[in-house]
Design a protein around this nucleic acid. Structure first.
Lengths: 334, 334
DNA sequence: CTGAAAGCGCTTACAG
DNA sequence: CTGAAAGCGCTTACAG
C-alpha cells in the first residue's frame, strides 16, 4: 500500500489562516466562533476535501462513533431485516455499525463485553432470542453501567437495560384464540421453548389460550430447534407417533414453512386438514401457497426506537421498556 | 455515563516493572523480548485484564482493524448468508466488520469511499449485484490503490480489484441446457437484467443456451425487479399477455418463489405445466413444494477467500480472480 | 534486549 | 472569540 497523504485539521487551519482549535470548534459546533472565521474554515474544509479522522477523535473524546449490533443469527430472515433497519437508522445519526453474529456461541458475548469498554464503543444493541445465561447477566449489568446498551426483542430491563419488545405472550395468545374461534381444539405449538427467551414467552401465550379454553395438552408442545428443519421434523414425528392435531402455531415463519412442507409430504392439506399460523410476518410468508397467516413484527419501528435511545443525552438510569404492537395477518393458511 | 477507568499499557508496564515499549513489543510479538520480561508482561496483562485500545493503536499505526462490508441489500437471503460467513471469517482473523447496507442508493457508495481513507479502514469488501456506475469506477480504482478492496460476486479485476466470483454465465447456461434436455423449448428468463451486473451475466448464459439450441425468443426475457414480487408480477403479465412458456429460469431463488406463487394462483402446476429453476441455493428453496431446483452458491467459500486476501502481506498489485464452482441442485420443481 | 521520546490527529480546558 | 499547549493510548525508530 502506498502511503496515503491525508489532510488533517492542521492543513485546514493553515489553509484558513486560523488555529486547529478553531477548526475543531467549527467541526463540532459547540463553542461560538466568529462568523468570518467559521466561513473561512468551512470553505477550506470543502476545498481540501477534509474529513476528520474518527480514531483520533474517538481517542481524544474517549468515545467512538461505533455501535455494536449483537445478533443471534443474521442468516435468519427476521434478524436480517432488523439489521438492515438498525444500520440505516444509526447511519442517519452518523453512527457506524459493527456487526457481531453470535451464532449461538455464548462465549462470544462475554468476549464482546470485555472488548466493549476498551473499544470505547458508543453503545451495544443486543438482538438475541436465546436465553442469556445467568453467568453473563451480571456482566451485562456492568456493561450497561458504562455505556449505552439496548435490547431488542428480549426484555432486559431487570438488568437495567432499556428494551424494545413485542408482547410475545399476548400475540401468541391472540393467534391461538383465533384458531380456537375457528373451532380447533387440537392445536400444536412448534419451536424452541427451553433456552429461548422469546420462544418461551410465545409458548406461554399459547398455553394461556389453551388453558383458558380447557384444552391444553402437553403432548402438543413440540420443543424443537431450528428454523425450517424444526417445523419439518416436528410434523413428521407427530404424525409417525399418531398424535392427532388440526392446527399448528409455529414459533416463527421459518418453522411454519418447514411444517407446511412436511404436511404436504404427508398429504395433509393446509388449511383444511391442518391450519397453520406463523410468527414474525416476514415477506416470504406472503408467497407461500397457501399464503401464511402470521403475526406481524415491526423491525423499522424497533430500529427507530433504538436510534432514539442513542441521540438523547438521557443519562437517566431508567431502563425504559418500549412495547411494540403486533397484529394477526390473516391469509390462506389458517 | 460514569467515567470508566481503563487499564493502559502504562499500568501494565508499571505492574510488570518494564517500560511501555516492552509491553507493546510483547503485545505485537515482532521484536525480540527477553523471556523473563515477556513472562512478566504476560502475567501482568492477565492479572489486570488488559486489552489494548484499538483507536489508539489504529491512530498510531495509521490503520484500523476494521473491514467495511458493503452489501447491496442485507434483507435478501443471499446477502444475509454471505454477511454471516464473512463476519465470522474476519472475526477469526481478529478483524471487525463494519456493515454498510447500500440499499440500491449509489450515493452511499461514493460517500463510503470518501470516508474509507480517513477512517483508515483495513479494507473494503464489496458485495453488490448492481452495476457500478462508470462515475464511481475511477474512485473505486483510486480506493483500491490505497487499501485492500475485494469484490465478491462481481468481477472488478479491471479496476484492479481482486474478485471472488461464481461463473454466472456458465451456470445459467447449464441450467437452461438441463431444461432443454428435458424437452422444453419455450423457456423464460425472469429477473433484473439492465442495471444488474450479475443479472446480465446470468441472462447472457440463458441466451447462450437458447441461441445454441436455436430457440431464443426475446419476448421470453422478462426484465423485472425485485425479489419475490418480480417473479410474481412477471408471470401474471406473461399469462395476461397470452405468452406461451413451459419453463422459467429465475435470476434468484426469491424470484423463483414469487413465480411459483403466481403459477399456482393461475392454476399452472409446477413442474408439469411449467418447470422452474431458481438461482442461489438458499436454504428455503428446499422447503418449497415442489422443492426448488436451483443453482448452488458457496458463501462460506467466498468468505474464506476474502479472509485469505486479508491476512497475506501480498502487496502484489495483481488483482486475482477466484472462480467458485456452481452446481445444479435438481429437486422437484424442474 | 530495552527505555526515553516523539508523534499519530484530534479536542478541550486554560488563558487571554 | 481565539490560540498555545496538553494529552487521549498506543507504537516505533533511535540510542544505548
Amino acid at each position: 500500500m502506498p502511503p496515503r497523504t491525508i489532510t488533517t485539521v492542521l492543513d485546514v487551519a493553515r489553509h484558513a489562516g486560523v488555529s486547529p482549535a478553531t477548526v475543531s470548534r467549527v467541526l463540532n459546533g459547540r463553542a461560538t466562533v466568529n462568523r468570518e472565521s467559521r466561513e473561512r474554515v468551512t470553505t477550506s474544509i470543502a476545498a481540501l476535501g477534509y474529513s476528520p479522522n474518527p480514531m483520533a477523535r474517538g481517542l481524544r473524546r474517549g468515545q467512538s462513533d461505533t455501535v455494536a449490533l449483537v445478533v443471534g443469527d443474521i442468516a435468519q430472515t427476521h434478524f436480517a431485516e432488523l439489521t438492515m433497519q438498525v444500520q440505516s437508522a444509526l447511519q442517519a445519526k452518523g453512527l457506524d455499525l459493527m456487526l457481531v453474529n453470535l451464532g449461538h456461541r455464548p462465549d462470544r458475548l462475554a468476549q464482546l463485553f470485555e472488548r466493549a469498554a476498551t473499544m470505547r464503543l458508543r453503545g451495544v444493541v443486543i438482538a438475541l432470542s436465546d436465553q442469556i445465561s445467568s453467568a453473563v447477566k451480571p456482566q451485562l449489568a456492568a456493561l450497561a453501567a458504562g455505556l449505552r446498551v439496548v435490547s431488542v426483542g428480549q426484555d432486559l430491563t431487570r438488568q437495567g437495560i432499556p428494551s424494545i419488545v413485542h408482547d410475545e405472550r399476548m400475540a401468541a395468545r391472540q393467534a391461538v384464540e383465533y384458531l380456537l374461534a375457528k373451532g380447533h381444539r387440537r392445536i400444536a405449538y412448534v419451536g424452541r421453548v427451553r433456552g429461548s427467551a422469546i420462544g418461551s414467552e410465545r409458548c406461554r401465550g399459547y398455553c394461556d389460550a389453551l388453558e383458558a379454553a380447557g384444552c391444553f395438552d402437553p403432548t402438543l408442545v413440540w420443543d424443537e430447534a431450528f428454523r425450517y428443519a424444526a417445523g419439518e421434523r416436528a410434523v413428521h414425528k407427530a404424525i409417525d407417533a399418531g398424535v392427532r392435531f388440526t392446527a399448528i402455531q409455529a414459533a416463527s415463519d421459518e418453522i411454519a414453512i418447514g411444517a407446511m412442507a412436511a404436511l404436504k409430504d404427508r398429504d395433509r392439506t393446509v388449511p383444511d386438514d391442518v391450519a397453520l399460523v406463523g410468527f414474525g410476518g416476514i415477506t416470504m410468508g406472503a408467497y407461500m401457497r397457501p399464503a401464511l397467516t402470521t403475526i406481524s413484527s415491526h423491525p423499522e419501528q424497533a430500529a427507530m426506537h433504538v436510534a432514539t435511545l442513542f441521540d438523547e443525552r438521557l443519562d437517566t438510569r431508567s431502563a425504559v421498556l418500549v412495547r411494540l404492537p403486533r397484529g394477526l395477518l390473516v391469509r390462506g393458511s389458517a
